[in-house]
Amino acid sequence: MDYVKAFLIGGLICAVVQIFMDRTKLMPGRIMVGLVCLGAILGFAGVYQPFIDWAGCGASVPLAGFGNTLYQGVKEAVDSDGLLGLFRGGFEASAAGISGALLFGYAASLIFDPKMKN
């Protein structure tokens, strides 16, 4: 059941974004920014976390999940550290993902050369 939910929900989110992309011709970078902000807002509204608890990776793997992670991080940090938490929480919660992408990305640039499309 986990897998069915992950497949259907994850697929559904991507399908909706595809409609949006085809209709608006927005550049992919803008779509990514939009998804992260949307995730943070839905996290703030208290919707996204229960959604992840229910749909699992179907909700956490899309970039909106990254936005939610950022907000949840800020929220927890505010609870424990007050105002200072606003400045700590986001990067603390997303540290693994961002560091991973940067480190693996850098490593890949050491190994691979740009290739032609055909």
């Binding site: 011709k25 992919p28 740009p114 290739k115 032609m116 499309k117």
Partner: peptide
């Protein structure tokens, strides 16, 4: 040149996107 033009005007060649 396809590679130099993509890099100058669009995306890195390894970047995944759909062309209309």
């Amino acid at each position: 040149h396809f590679g130099s033009a993509e890099k100058t005007f669009r995306f890195p060649l390894e970047y995944g996107n759909q062309r209309p």
